[in-house]
Amino acid sequence: MTKQPFNSIYGDQARQSTGLLFNQVYNQWHSRIKQKLATIDLTLPQFFVLAATAFLQRQQDFVTQVDIARFSDMDVMTVSQVLRLLVKKNLLTREVHPKDSRAKIILLTEAGLAKVNQALPLVEHFDLEFFGKLEQEKEHFNQLLIKLEEKNA
């Protein structure tokens, strides 16, 4: 069989491709975390929006959709769609911003706070288990991720 041209700098050494490896690991993490969150009727984007809202409400007086999008590095329109679903689930409310009538503030309901507090230990335990396989290298891995995030922002 004749080998077809394959215009990759890695040739037949696919495991040298950082992007491929990152994608494979991300897909493993993503698939498993989605399964965990499904057990409590949440999607991953819903969890991110709830967790971002809970975190930001501890840091500032008013949380907006734009604040959530920036903090979670999600597209504003995606955040808007997720917010609508979470409002329907009675996990969040939208209210008129007291200082800007054109803006809405996002607030966790009691049910939303309970849901995020149910989800956080589930997600954090999973992350500890999944990334714990790095052992002593986990902190270095986190620092490298922070560096990549900052340099590519």
Rank of each mutant, 00 (worst) to 15 (best):
Lys3Leu: 09
Pro5Glu: 13
Pro5Arg: 13
Phe6Gly: 00
Asn7His: 10
Ser8Tyr: 04
Tyr10Ser: 03
Tyr10Gly: 04
Gly11Asp: 03
Gln13Val: 07
Ala14Trp: 10
Gly19Ser: 06
Gly19Thr: 01
Leu20Asp: 00
Phe22Asp: 04
Gln24Gly: 04
Gln28Met: 12
Gln28Trp: 08
Trp29His: 13
His30Ser: 11
Ser31Tyr: 14
Ser31Pro: 01
Ser31Leu: 14
Ser31Gly: 11
Lys34Pro: 00
Gln35Thr: 11
Leu37Cys: 02
Ala38Ile: 05
Ala38His: 11
Thr39Gln: 15
Thr39Met: 15
Thr39Ser: 15
Ile40Lys: 05
Ile40Ala: 06
Ile40Cys: 08
Asp41Val: 07
Asp41Leu: 11
Leu42Tyr: 03
Leu42Ile: 05
Thr43Met: 05
Thr43Gln: 07
Leu44Thr: 11
Pro45Cys: 07
Pro45Phe: 06
Phe47Asp: 01
Phe47Glu: 02
Val49Trp: 00
Leu50Gly: 02
Ala51Thr: 06
Ala52Ile: 02
Arg58Ile: 00
Asp61Val: 10
Phe62Pro: 00
Thr64Ser: 15
Gln65Asp: 07
Gln65Trp: 03
Asp67Met: 07
Ile68Arg: 03
Ile68Gln: 02
Ile68Pro: 02
Ile68Val: 15
Ala69Glu: 02
Ala69Leu: 06
Ala69His: 01
Arg70Tyr: 11
Phe71Thr: 03
Asp73Leu: 11
Met74Pro: 03
Met74Phe: 15
Met77Gln: 13
Met77Ser: 13
Thr78Ile: 13
Thr78Leu: 15
Thr78His: 12
Val79Asp: 00
Ser80Gly: 15
Gln81Val: 09
Val82Ile: 15
Val87Glu: 12
Val87His: 01
Val87Met: 07
Lys88Gly: 08
Lys88Cys: 07
Lys89Tyr: 09
Lys89Cys: 04
Leu91Val: 03
Val96Arg: 14
Val96Tyr: 08
Val96Pro: 06
Pro98Tyr: 05
Lys99Glu: 15
Asp100Thr: 03
Leu107Gly: 02
Thr109Val: 01
Thr109Asn: 02
Glu110Met: 08
Glu110Gln: 09
Ala111Pro: 00
Ala114Pro: 00
Lys115Glu: 06
Lys115Thr: 08
Lys115Pro: 03
Lys115Ser: 06
Val116Pro: 02
Val116Arg: 00
Val116Cys: 01
Gln118Ala: 15
Gln118His: 08
Gln118Ile: 01
Gln118Tyr: 04
Ala119Met: 04
Pro121His: 06
Pro121Thr: 02
Leu122Ala: 01
Glu124Ile: 09
Glu124Tyr: 10
Phe126Asp: 03
Asp127Arg: 09
Phe130Ala: 00
Phe131Ser: 01
Phe131Arg: 02
Lys133Thr: 10
Glu135Phe: 13
Glu137Thr: 08
Lys138Arg: 13
Lys138Glu: 08
Lys138Leu: 12
Asn142Lys: 09
Asn142Ile: 12
Leu144Thr: 00
Leu144Lys: 07
Leu145Ile: 10
Ile146Ala: 11
Lys147Phe: 08
Leu148Phe: 12
Glu149Ile: 08
Glu150Ser: 10
Lys151Met: 14
Asn152Leu: 15
Asn152Phe: 14
Ala153Trp: 09
